[in-house]
């Protein structure tokens, strides 16, 4: 009898706990007035953020060249230890793409990982970095994406085994890993370093590949930008902190030059997934590449 009561009590507690989990971790939206106050998008800045964010690297059709890269038809398969993600169509097509999305819906996806139907999005879409983006930059990017060509392509569904196919569980992931706090506290308060911090930690989402992840796929922020095993396959993603005997031997000028030309200080050319990143970085104003370099020289060596 006592055992039965105890078990019954546990079931009730479990139900309350589960209910509490769902309540606490429900998909969030940004207050609507945030976007209402944003004003008209600045398309030139939107384009700059578009390249800082490297949207084309995942959302252009795989293998697209030159101008075709501006057709954000989706379809790239992103392999991970949790399954294979397929980047969706984010062209302005009203049905296949995001053409019918409001700025608020776009902003919720970008900064809260909340989809149009109020569902949790998978963090393969790096909203855990984009959460640091300013309202202005999200607004300008939204405006710029609207100017790009439409595509009717529908990307495949994500291929995820149980339990990773349960979107509800992503609420727990967000509870642990989604915030807009700085990744590192920097001693330097220089404007250029701060700009670099914004670009690297926010739109540039450099840490999504260059920082190792724990078992749940969250970034090990105490190893910020320290590199690690390549989640997409063999090899390693390099450490880009000023570590002695490693990236620390690159001067700020070397980093700027690499991001602009794709050549390392030894005149090897950029490789792997960084190829498309570098092409995007080359489209930024030079001051942004200099800011990124200044920040990478300022972060703690790991």
């Amino acid at each position: 009898m006592a055992l039965k009561k105890l078990l019954g009590g546990l079931v009730v507690l479990g139900a309350i706990g589960a209910g509490g989990f769902v309540f606490i971790t429900a998909p969030e939206r940004v207050p609507a007035e945030t976007w209402a106050s944003a004003g008209e998008p600045d398309l030139a800045n939107g384009e700059r953020i578009f390249y800082a964010g490297g949207c084309v690297s995942c959302h252009a059709a795989p293998g697209a060249a030159d101008e075709q890269k501006l057709v954000l038809a989706g379809g790239l398969a992103l392999k991970s230890p949790f399954g294979t993600f397929h980047a969706p169509n984010i062209s302005p097509d009203e049905t296949a793409g995001i053409g019918a999305w409001t700025l608020a819906e776009f902003g919720d996806a970008m900064t809260r990982g909340t989809g149009r139907d109020g569902e949790h999005l998978y963090p393969s879409f790096p909203y855990a970095s984009y959460a640091r983006m300013t309202v202005k930059d999200v607004t300008d990017l939204y405006g710029y994406l609207k100017t790009l060509p439409k595509s009717t392509n529908v990307a495949p569904e994500h291929e995820l085994p149980f339990p990773f196919n349960i979107r509800l569980a992503l609420g727990g992931w967000k509870f642990l890993y989604l915030n807009d706090a700085p990744r590192v506290e920097l001693a330097s308060a220089e404007e250029t370093v701060k700009r670099g911090q914004y670009l690297v930690e926010g739109p540039g989402h450099c840490g999504e590949c260059h920082t190792p992840r724990d078992m749940l796929g969250g970034l090990k922020t105490d190893q910020w930008l320290a590199g690690g095993p390549n989640p997409e396959g063999e090899g390693r993603v390099p450490n880009i902190t000023p570590a002695e005997g490693g990236f620390g031997s690159w001067s700020a000028g070397d980093i700027v030059s690499y991001l602009e030309t794709g050549f390392t200080p030894d005149f090897d050319s950029v490789g792997g997934a960084m190829v498309s990143v570098q092409k995007n970085m080359a489209r930024l104003p030079k001051e942004d590449r200099e800011a990124i370099a200044a920040y990478l020289k300022a972060v703690p060596a790991r």
């Binding site: 090899g235 794709g262 050319s269 950029v270 190829v275």
Partner: peptide, 16 residues
């Protein structure tokens, strides 16, 4: 000359 490096490496070199 420079674009020859990337042009070939992107297709024929696997960066590990």
């Amino acid at each position: 000359i420079g674009p020859n490096c990337a042009g070939c490496h992107e297709v024929y070199r696997v960066k590990k």
